[in-house]
Amino acid sequence: MSILVQNVSKSFGDFAALHDVSVEIPSGSLTALLGPSGGGKSTLLRVIAGLEQPDTGRVEIEGVEATALPPQRRGVGFVFQHYAAFKHMTVERNVAFGLSIRHKPKEEIRQRVQELLELVHLEQFAHRYPSQLSGGQRQRMALARALAVEPKVLLLDEPFGALDAQVRKELRAWLRRLHDQVHVTTVFVTHDQEEAMEVADEIVVMAGGEVKQIGSPDELYERPASEFVMSFLGPVTKIGGELVRPHDVEILTAGTAGARPALISRVTRLGFEVRVDLEVEGEPAWAQVTRGTADHLGLKSGDRVWVLPHKVRTSVAASVGETPPAS
């Protein structure tokens, strides 16, 4: 294990940010801490980095007891949401900071900085100041700066949170490729389930200061441990009191075993996908079908049809925090 967090709790005044959190993060993986804001994910990341001291519990990094170590001696690289760029230094000196502090030879620093700037595609910006860079460029600089000291673990706190949607998408894909190149154990915090699903090997879902479930994006999507995880990871609708993904609702023109009668209240065409709003036993619900299916069945509002939900979540499977991480 690269990072081991055991029974960590942390309170700020009356607010319990983390409650008995245990997480294991395998070496070389790319893990997302996902959850709503105030769920404790940033606090957990800061505890791992040593920027917060846990009230109870322990942290181990690469097999070394780290709970009492200051951030300087943990071998972690931290990337902040708002870049934390040193504005009075050029890009080059920002990236070189950790190496200069360690009094590395000038030539070695120059070479390493050059390599890193190439890695993050900022080589032509070496002599600019952070104020002359765009948000995405600043964040790439911050990443290069964190990687310069060859951390055992890279931690990113909502790294794309301050960027606009387009740049965020580009950087996401870029982070994934970068990780495949560098292989450093990476943990990033996000509240965007799409970002987590797209980038991470493994997702730790957190809410209310607790770990709700740990697993691969597929596992979480297909076998959510709770209604909370299910609704946080994708769209859901309720049919007969059970949660179901709208694309797992089959629409039939004739009754069959398990099917319920429904009234179509509206059909919305969104390109390939068609959203069908329904009334099932007096309750609103919706289904997501392809354009082909909708055309084939000739669905239109006012039609009386039958709905058959598949893969309904009937009971809470594994309990909270006990699902072992896939590695």
Partner: peptide, 20 residues
């Protein structure tokens, strides 16, 4: 966060004050 970034990169308290 500037000071945290500096310390995370290995700078001590005095170095952080002086350089950041």
């Amino acid at each position: 966060s500037l000071e945290e970034a500096s310390m995370d990169l290995g700078a001590g308290v005095l170095q952080t004050f002086r350089f950041v």
